[in-house]
Nucleic acid binder design. Structure first.
Length: 715
DNA sequence: GAGCACTGC
């Protein structure tokens, strides 16, 4: 992912002062102060601090551009909320946001990043003992809670972008509600008079300080004080959060956005691809300067519209041909993604064809026109089969507003919704929260590890489907993570909960330890946890196949992945012997390109690998290798992934044993033509047919031998 | 012989 302008981007002008660096610095400080004071939230600073002092939970509804994410933590810090060494934690749903905002706030405070102001995301911790304002991803705070269930180092936790309702945010809210209750109960209110020195060195007045004693102190040996909770949301509807926290107080902070003129069609469109194309050319030919952002559902749609524009463009008069088409979606290599940030050649208008990556994750400069066909591709969850198919649905109202807002970031803009106005009012108010449409195995494992035994009775902000909970509990039971009494099993369940992986993969590591092939399984699981590591441009499909053949294993995709990883690792280690680590990394990227491997995915897998290797070593597991014994390796795969086994049928298709579904081996598999009798697989995708991916061949008889709890009846 | 939105630990 390219580095992106955050929602709270720096609007301060660059200053080049002829009077030297010191004057430069002063000018910069003044510019920052001026910028801070001009933010809409600045006028309510005192009031916000009062509200936080008077309320344990506060909901802040802040529109885009209010400055809430960067400013509130600073207000709290200078308002004395870090006394006794307490930390202000601010959670974000996305990694880039946590990093860019932390950098900005460190600069505003005039401190080095990682000192007073820092951030922590997976694989990258820029905090220290002196960090008092800590930005982080919500998923990371959930992981921290496993080690410190009372989140004792935090005096305030701010949950930002709560309206997005990611699974992590929802689970975190539930956890925070309990933690807050426990922490306030655990405090005997011994009030002292005390002088506090704030971190900025200013002596504050003597005031009443509540010191924590009581139960929690005894239990934890830690000094627990009450926890302040602030929920920040950009949606106008604060009621759901307020209700959840017992009628918590909500305050509204003005935003700062330019007006966006929203236009609708008169009639519903039968073909939105065609309507999109017409609208792009209409804007290009009739409207003033400014780039166009088009929201589409996926790569295929983006590529076909790109082709159609290129076909029609030459038919326009020469003076009107200056239109530059730029696609952007998540799986596009980063170099190509960066193109959206580059200014077009002089006189050209950019038209950016994007998935909803451009809704929140990437802020593209220069957009004046937004085209919104009103459709989006979403992942759903079918509890009866466990499949998570992607389907195209209408957007919600909130999503349509988010999209149109993208036209008003730098000046007044226009949004073309390709449906009639009355259709807009029929849309759902907001997108279904993720927790209602995903597999819950991981959520349940984490809650159990946090001591929540009664999952069906857990106080979720919005209940997931009962069936989805039961299905995931069943899975965890089959994996041996839960006991008959539905408690986390010891040690397996506890070990699994500590690993940041899909529970099936966590279990595979535990199993591999018994099969003496943990070294191999760590690599395989890391690779299975990332996007496909294969990257072959359409025009080089044949060439890529030839190159990759040298790595392929007749025993299946798992051993093929292992070979590729080891080859890349060997290459990297050799390069490190002759050059700097940076140069070695660069060489590895070149190696990836030559071997048709996606270097971004491989890097991600390497990061995961080193993290989970550390995790298993900390658990006391011994990382041993089975060497060349691939039979042992496949027996271990069978013992780990026994729930995903399939048998060949007389007609050459397969039947998945646990679900009974008819499936086929995906054409990308090395076993596609081999068609072995019995296979295990890691993924079942539903497109035109049911395909299984990441497949290895196993012996049918291993199943009752290695997973008797599930296959006893086969004998 | 296929074609998969976006996040996160």
């Amino acid at each position: 992912m390219p580095s992106m302008a955050s929602n709270n981007a720096d609007h301060t002008a660059k200053i080049n002062n002829p009077n030297g660096p010191k004057a430069d610095f002063m000018a910069r400080r003044q510019a920052i102060e001026k910028h801070r004071k001009a933010l809409p939230i600045a006028v309510v600073e005192k009031r916000l601090l009062e509200e936080v002092r008077n309320n344990d939970v506060l909901i802040i509804v802040g529109e885009t551009g209010s400055g809430k994410t960067t400013q509130l933590p600073q207000y709290l810090f200078y308002g004395g909320f870090c006394r006794n060494g307490g930390v202000i934690g601010i959670t974000q749903p996305r990694r880039v946001a946590a990093v860019t905002v932390a950098k900005r706030v460190a600069e505003e405070c005039g401190v080095t990043l990682g000192q007073k102001v820092g951030y922590a995301i997976r694989f990258d911790d820029a905090t220290s003992a002196s960090t008092r304002i800590k930005y982080m991803t919500d998923g990371l705070l959930l992981r921290e809670a496993l080690l410190d269930p009372y989140l004792s180092k935090y005096s305030v936790i701010v949950v930002d972008e709560a309206h997005e309702r990611t699974v992590h945010t929802d689970v975190l809210l539930g956890l925070l509600k309990t933690v807050q209750k426990t922490r306030s109960q655990g405090v005997n209110k011994n009030v002292h008079n005390r002088t506090i020195e704030a971190e900025n060195g200013i002596q504050l007045e003597k005031e009443n300080v509540v010191e924590s004693t009581g139960i929690m102190k005894h239990n934890q040996g830690k000094n627990l004080s009450p926890l302040k909770l602030i929920i920040m949301s950009a949606s106008l509807d604060a009621k759901i959060f307020s209700d959840y926290f017992g009628g918590a107080r909500a305050v509204h902070v003005q935003g700062r956005q330019y007006p966006v003129d929203v236009l609708y069609t008169h009639q519903p469109e039968t073909d939105y691809v065609d309507a999109t194309l017409i609208t792009i050319f209409q804007i290009h030919l009739e409207e003033g300067p400014g780039d166009i952002l088009v929201f589409l559902t996926g790569q295929e749609e983006i590529e076909s519209i790109e082709r159609l524009i290129q076909e029609r463009l030459p038919k326009l008069p020469e003076s009107k041909c200056k239109l530059l088409v730029i696609p952007i979606f998540a799986s596009l290599p980063s170099e190509k993604q960066m193109k959206v940030f580059m200014p077009p050649p002089s006189g050209f208008r950019k038209v950016i064809l994007a998935t909803n990556i451009a809704e929140t994750s990437v802020t593209i400069p220069g957009i004046r026109y937004v085209i919104d066909p009103g459709m989006v591709k979403v992942r759903t969850y079918d509890a009866s089969t466990g499949i998570e198919p992607l389907i195209i649905v209408k957007t919600s109202k909130a999503q349509a507003l988010q999209r149109s807002g993208r036209a008003g970031r730098e000046g007044p803009g226009k949004c073309y919704r390709l449906y009639p106005e009355n259709e807009f009012y029929k849309l759902k108010a907001s997108t279904t929260p993720e927790i209602k449409r995903c597999n819950l195995a991981n959520v349940i494992l984490q809650l159990k590890a946090l001591g929540v035994d009664d999952i069906l009775g857990f106080d979720f902000i919005e209940e997931p489907d009962r069936m989805a909970i039961i299905k995931s509990m069943e899975l965890l039971f089959l994996l041996g993570a839960l006991t008959d009494g539905s408690k986390l099993s010891d040690p397996v369940g506890h070990q699994m909960a500590r690993l940041p992986l899909d529970p099936i993969y966590s279990k595979a590591l535990v199993v591999a330890n018994q099969f003496n092939c943990l070294e191999e399984m760590l690599i395989i699981v890391a690779l299975l946890s990332v996007e496909s590591i294969y990257y072959a441009p359409r025009e080089k499909l044949e060439e890529s196949r030839t190159v990759l053949r040298s790595f392929s294993s007749l025993e299946g995709d798992h051993l093929t992945l292992l070979k590729i990883y080891r080859a890349s690792d060997e290459f990297l280690e050799k390069s490190k012997l002759v050059g700097s680590p940076d140069k070695a990394e660069k060489k590895l990227r070149k190696w990836c390109k030559q071997n048709f491997i996606n270097s971004r995915s491989l890097k991600h897998a390497r990061d995961i690998h080193s993290q989970i290797r550390r995790n298993v070593e900390q658990m006391g597991l011994c990382v041993t290798s089975c060497g060349d014994d691939t039979l042992q390796m496949r027996r271990c795969l069978a013992a780990s992934f026994f729930l995903n086994a399939a048998l060949k049928q007389p007609d050459g298709t397969y039947r998945a044993l646990s679900s009974g579904l008819a499936v086929q081996i995906h054409p990308s598999s090395v076993l596609f033509r081999m068609k072995p009798e019995c296979i295990i697989f890691n993924e079942l995708v539903r497109t035109n047919q049911n395909y299984v991916r990441n497949v290895s061949t196993i012996d049918y008889l291993w199943l009752p031998e290695l997973a008797p709890q599930f296959y006893a009846l086969l004998e």
